[in-house]
């Protein structure tokens, strides 16, 4: 149930959603989304060995791929743990961000997701909770997408 409400909430926030059965299907979807774009990719178990083009300068990357540590259906949010192998730049510098979420990681509520994060000991140096693409309403409340972070967000739910 919470997977369906998670997907509905993501779509309401303007986030693209792909639902796949397993990691093999996930690899195929990600490969198609990325194409020949310059890509930053985190260490994601089961998703290694993709044939990706790395950027010369991370600031020139076109796509970033991360895996969610936890997710919340009610907020349409994903929590990314930032550490060695999963730097902050992946979800930040490229205009298109892809997040892989294992269905078993999806919690019903924001509070449950926060509890997952708070239980990490020691706390990771960085956790970024993401709910929708980067946006701003600072010019007369007109909604602008992709202000400083990604303008496009795709969540691939696995399982």
């Amino acid at each position: 149930m919470s997977v369906e409400s998670f997907e509905a909430r993501l779509r309401a926030l303007g986030t693209e959603v792909e639902r796949v059965a397993d990691l093999a299907a996930c690899r195929a979807v990600v490969a198609e989304l990325v194409g020949t774009s310059r890509t930053l990719v985190d260490e994601i178990p089961g998703l290694d060995g993709l044939d990706l083009v790395p950027p010369k300068d991370p600031w020139d990357a076109e796509v970033g791929i991360s895996e969610a540590f936890s997710a919340a259906a009610d907020a349409g949010a994903v929590a990314l743990v930032q550490a060695a192998g999963s730097p902050r730049r992946t979800s930040l510098l490229p205009p298109h961000h892809i997040v892989v979420v294992r269905a078993g990681r999806i919690r019903g509520t924001y509070q449950e997701m926060v509890d997952d994060v708070a239980a990490l000991d020691p706390p990771p140096t960085g956790v970024q909770i993401v709910s929708g693409a980067s946006r701003s309403g600072d010019i007369e409340s007109a909604m602008i997408h992709g202000m400083h972070g990604p303008r496009r967000l795709t969540v691939v739910v696995v399982g």
Partner: peptide, 9 residues
Amino acid sequence: TTAYQTLLS
């Protein structure tokens, strides 16, 4: 929630 919550430890 906002688009981002940044947790720094």
